[in-house]
């Protein structure tokens, strides 16, 4: 499976390039129309080169999500919902961006540190701690 994933990325790039060589159009709203996305990016008209880069980045993010355990039937729609700049950010920092979970897994000593910081009003880990009204 891992091997497959390693191959998937270069292959998908090849496929995209192949489509371009065959003259298949870059995404437009509909045949004949120029898409809204083309004008909305800071109102600068995107060059084909940039649109190609965005397309490749989308493929890249799809592979990254797949490699991090997202179910294949969700991948397409999860990436489609992102703007071009969001896709760029995700591609560059998928492992650095905070992943909100609301769960803490720490040792006892850290637990005690956080208990104290909670009481001082610096953190908000334990709902049972009454937070100070004055800072």
């Amino acid at each position: 499976m891992n091997k497959l994933r390693r191959i998937a990325k270069p292959v998908s790039h090849l496929v995209v390039l192949g489509l371009l060589v065959l003259g298949i159009h870059l995404p437009a709203a509909q045949a004949g129309l120029i898409s809204t996305e083309t004008v909305v990016n800071a109102e600068q008209v995107q060059q084909d080169r940039e649109r190609l880069r965005d397309m490749l980045t989308r493929e890249d993010v799809k592979n990254q999500l797949l490699a991090r355990g997202v179910s294949p039937d969700q991948i397409e729609a999860r990436v489609d919902g992102l703007t071009d700049s969001e896709v760029q950010t995700l591609a560059a920092k998928i492992d650095q961006l905070p992943a909100g979970a609301g769960v803490l897994e720490v040792a006892l000593v850290v637990f005690l540190v956080l208990l104290v910081t909670d009481i001082l009003g610096y953190t908000d880990i334990f709902p049972f701690v009454k937070k100070p009204a004055k800072r």
Partner: peptide
């Protein structure tokens, strides 16, 4: 299934927007 990222055990901000 639309936002959770199993390997990171959480959800990314950008994916909440997309969802």
């Amino acid at each position: 299934p639309q936002v959770y990222l199993p390997e990171r055990k959480g959800s990314l901000q950008l994916e909440l927007l997309a969802a």
